[in-house]
Simulated assay, not measured.
Amino acid sequence: MRTPAPTTVADLTEAVLRGAHGPDPAALHAVGAFWVRQSTQFPGTDTKYRNYYLVLRAESAFGGCCLERDQLDSAIAEELSGRSLAELLRDPRTPVRIAALDAYLALAYPHREQAQARAQLLPHGTPLERAKARDAAIAGLLDIRPGMRVGLIGVVNPLVEAIRARGGVCLPCDFNLKHTADGTEVVADMELVLAQADMVIATGMTLSNGSFDRIVEVARERGTGLVVYAQTGSAIVPRFLGHGVSAVSAEPFPFSQFSADPTPIHLYRADGLDAREAA
């Protein structure tokens, strides 16, 4: 029997705990746990991106969650290894649950085996070259018509440029930025953006701050196109494909900024077409 599509992340987590998506999570363990602090600032810019990650390894898969600076202490990495994924899926701390769910679903639904996913290798190169290639791939998932209002929840400046290049009106939203690179004001209240947007582009970090469910709910109610670029929850977001999420750029760990060698991203679309046939 086919597993019903989840409505919320909590629904998906409960289904995993019931065994509806594959192996018993109580039998799987986080063999490795990592807490990573990283920043990026490209030459000639004054924007510094600060990222904090919790990463769990279970068997052959990794689960990742980007979080706010003070959301978890770095000692978490020493605490979590050895615990079962079932235990971590019940942890009171949201980033721990997200990383565990991501690791579990990466095992249950490997990107390379999903018919709706098209793998694309980011090229060997500098951080800027690889970031541009990644953002161009994400922009390729967008179906923006001139004059369309596009909410960008989690600001990445090349995506601001991509929206405008396609004739869209960018509505940027972010907790940590006040202005985009071109000076556009960034709002902190996503409800203002969701109320106006004809399409929404969101980062997977919405999973770790708890806003993902609300964004998907609005997308379903209003029929708003929702594209998610996911390092956080790269295996979680595709479970919502066609049920609030229109397309996903899924980037599992190790993330592009941690390597100069070719690494894959997996592009999903909810149009029913096998992405490998469309490539």
Rank of each mutant, 00 (worst) to 15 (best):
Y109Q: 10
D91R: 01
V55E: 05
G125Q: 03
D102I: 01
R145F: 08
L80E: 00
L105I: 13
C66S: 13
I215F: 05
R220K: 15
D102L: 07
G44H: 12
V36D: 10
R118F: 07
H111D: 06
G272F: 12
D174W: 08
V31H: 12
A10R: 11
A278D: 13
I144S: 01
Y53Q: 08
D198Y: 09
Q114R: 14
A197W: 03
A30K: 00
A278P: 02
R57G: 05
A133C: 05
P6A: 04
A260E: 04
Y268L: 03
R50E: 14
E68F: 07
D135P: 00
Q71L: 04
L141R: 08
F212E: 01
D182M: 10
G140C: 05
N51I: 12
D24M: 08
A106T: 10
L67I: 14
G82P: 03
P254N: 00
P172S: 02
R130Q: 01
H179Q: 15
P25L: 06
E185T: 14
S211L: 12
A61E: 07
L89G: 04
D135C: 09
E277S: 15
A5V: 08
A33W: 02
T203I: 12
A270K: 07
V160D: 04
Y268G: 01
S259Q: 10
L267T: 01
E161Y: 09
V245M: 14
R2W: 00
A108H: 10
L128M: 11
C173N: 11
